[in-house]
């Protein structure tokens, strides 16, 4: 469902994302893991078409983000790092606007909105003005915005950041439901970024670890933890500065030549 090919983003001299390749199959829930400033947000912004890659490209459900941007975007639900909310709107008028701009046919809008409201636990605050909601509720409105058109691909940038443990638990079980839905619901492919290891272990089957813009690990969690090491040990080992130096010494020579 998601193919990233050699995705690269440079900001002047800094390389935020450096030749990242991966592919995500239908129904997978992939944890996009990395320390702060690793390039997670930048990668997601390229996948969703918010910023163009300096190099490389990606396809969403076989639609290239350059050649068929509208078709690709129609198939994505995206929760940015800060939920994109209009504070002066009510939850229901906000979702009605989202339903329109996401091309949900007029007749199906009500039903889609009702389902998103219910799934995200927003029933009690439907008529409330978004600006008056707590952070937890605002995050859920952000999530409702991402799923209302029931897109085949969900891209969630740190979906549980700043929530309390109960809210985190609820959001995580919602994400699990989206990928393994009951009868009649569309199965969704999810890629979510986080720097919380427990989050990955709780909801993802597979991890992509990036550090300083490069993909360093891409494997199912059970393979990574088979020999008894914990994700935390792996994370520390792969992102510690001497690991980076070692990798650059061995395979980074060619890349270093073209900064």
């Amino acid at each position: 469902m998601i193919e990233a090919r050699e995705l690269t983003k440079r900001y002047g001299d800094t390389v935020a994302v450096d030749g990242v390749d991966f592919s995500v199959q239908k129904g997978e829930v992939v944890g996009f893991l990395g320390p702060n400033a690793a390039g997670k947000t930048t990668t997601m912004r390229m996948l969703t078409g918010f910023i163009p890659p300096t190099n490389g490209t990606a396809t969403i459900a076989d639609y290239d983000i350059f050649e068929n941007p509208l078709e690709a975007r129609r198939r994505i639900g995206y929760l940015p790092e800060t939920p994109p909310l209009y504070p002066e709107m009510t939850v229901s008028s906000y979702l009605a606007f989202i339903a329109r701009i996401k091309d949900i046919p007029r007749r199906a809008r009500r039903e889609h909105i009702d389902r998103a409201v219910e799934r995200c636990g927003l029933t009690s605050v439907r008529r409330r003005v978004i600006g008056t909601l707590s952070k937890g509720f605002r995050q859920r409105v952000g999530l409702a915005q991402a799923i209302v058109h029931e897109p085949p691909v969900l891209i969630l940038d740190e979906p549980t950041v700043g929530l309390d443990p109960l809210q985190i638990h609820e959001i995580r079980s919602l994400i699990r439901d989206l990928a393994a839905p009951g009868k009649g619901d569309t199965q969704q492919t999810v890629i979510l970024s986080t720097h919380i290891l427990a989050e990955v272990e709780a909801i993802c089957r597979r991890v992509i670890l990036i550090n300083q813009g490069r993909k360093v690990v891409d494997a199912p969690i059970e393979d990574l933890t088979r020999n008894g090491q914990s994700l935390e040990e792996l994370f520390v080992r792969e992102t510690a500065s001497d690991a980076v130096a070692k990798r650059e010494a061995s395979d980074g020579g060619a890349r270093e030549a073209t900064p």
């Binding site: 078709e71 940015p80 994109p84």
Partner: peptide
């Protein structure tokens, strides 16, 4: 400043 440009520019809008 709201971050909603990220919503508009990643929606199927021209």
């Amino acid at each position: 400043s709201n971050g909603t440009d990220e919503l508009l520019l990643t929606s199927p809008l021209t």
